[in-house]
Design a protein around this nucleic acid. Structure first.
Lengths: 261, 261
DNA sequence: GCTCGAGGCG
DNA sequence: CGCCTCGAGC
């Protein structure tokens, strides 16, 4: 089974690139972030014709997540409130969470807030959102005994080896100590970074800024992850970043990451 | 000799379409309208590599005219004021006129104001502009004895046979009596519509609205013209509208019109 | 419908 | 640098 995650930075703009990629990469599940489209305008047809079932949660202009699956998912929900209750409904105005069950594995697809700049209001929102994510995952673990795969764009590089040039990035968004610690706390309830099961080197990234020729100079960040519960982590046989679609004309700024188990 | 006119609705967006068309249609002169780009950003290289000399007069976002010529032009100028003097400089803020001489023929490339709606302020501007055009051409005829080819997007269908469904269009922009009369007055000083030398039928158009599937239903307007002085008119051997580029993906809303003499 | 800014976002 | 929205222009 292959589960991929890919921030596509607009599914309408990237439709052909994603169709072509799916045609050549037979993943069972594809988790998308930054679809940037309301549900009624999502370009479903091309993906359904490839044999995928689509589960989408979008909004206008920003954010938006989707799961494509070769077999139907069960127990699909989007946002925090189906799990945590209506008290957190405010956090669901931004479409950043969608989940479903396949082969008795719960897949949680996330688009973590970027946070803009350390100390900003958006940064505070990111930290609050991560705290809620922790409660969301803990609640899921209480409710269900299934293995869980959380994946998506975390907008956090947990370790210095996940950044092209970590020196002086202590106060940089996506690598500041406070947000790293906030994510570590989430993961501490039982999730492991499966990419690092197979690869401990630096120089492997999943996002490169469009500006300043980030990609050709490999000035990237590894911010797109799969975190797995213990049994699933043990079953994993591969996790790799596919650089090819990032080389195309008009690419997303992110590359897809593929987990295999 | 072939002289073509084409409103491209952004030369940057249409660059490849125009390059491909020029590669397959060996015109000597191509007059472009609505280039929509300042001179320093005009994509010169691709056209120069095809062997053309470029003469351009553009502005940001709107209007803009250009002449491409296989042999260098002489006596090139843009706007009304080089001919009519600085009193009319205000009318040259919009880049709608460029002219040059090839083979002892003066080619005048025009982008006549659209006029928006009959009676509007923009309609008054269109009428004032046409009056000035008449003075401009009369002055040219006084100064020079050359034959003249004026061509471009006139934003006027002079006769009912130039419109797909003329009934009820008496108060429509591009076919109202007042603007038609204004253009007739300009032409009365000695210009003839060369397309009508070869074709007197209706159903031949050069512009179709992007909306409401105008092209596939052939709901068009013939608003792109070549008007010639007498000797040149007699020498003309063909004038035709090339529908092919309008059929392509992401086309201009106008088709090119090719005069041969 | 399809262009072009301008301004927000990252 | 490349998304998005929005309004204007045609």
């Amino acid at each position: 089974m292959k589960i991929a995650t890919w921030n596509v930075n607009s599914i309408r703009t990237r439709q052909q690139i994603v169709v072509d990629w799916l045609s050549q990469n037979s993943v069972d599940v594809l988790c998308l972030q930054e679809t940037k489209v309301i549900d009624q305008d999502f370009p479903r047809l091309a993906f359904e014709q490839l044999g995928y079932h689509l589960y989408i949660s979008g909004q206008k202009a920003y954010n938006g997540v989707a799961i494509f699956s070769r077999t139907p998912l069960t127990e699909v929900s989007s946002g925090f409130s189906p799990i945590l209750g209506d008290i957190v409904a405010e956090f669901d105005l931004q479409k950043r969470v969608i989940t479903g069950v396949i082969a008795d594995i719960r897949v949680v697809n996330l688009y973590v807030p970027n946070g803009s700049a350390v100390g900003s209001e958006k940064y505070q929102y990111k930290l609050a959102w991560l705290k809620l994510l922790g409660e969301y995952l803990a609640t899921l673990q209480d409710k269900e005994t299934r293995e869980i795969c959380i994946c998506g764009d975390f907008n956090i590089a947990l370790e210095d080896r996940d950044i092209y040039n970590p020196k002086g990035k202590e106060n940089h968004i996506m690598s500041s100590p406070t947000e790293r610690e906030a994510l570590r706390e989430v993961l501490a309830i039982g999730f492991q970074d499966v990419f690092r099961k197979f690869n401990s080197e630096t120089g492997h990234y999943s996002w490169w800024d469009y500006r300043a020729a980030g990609f050709v100079r490999n000035r990237g960040w590894r911010i797109d992850h799969h975190y797995l519960t213990q049994k699933l982590y043990k079953q994993a046989i591969n996790c790799k970043i596919d650089l090819e679609p990032r080389k195309l004309d008009k690419p997303s700024d992110h590359a897809p990451v593929i987990l295999e188990f």
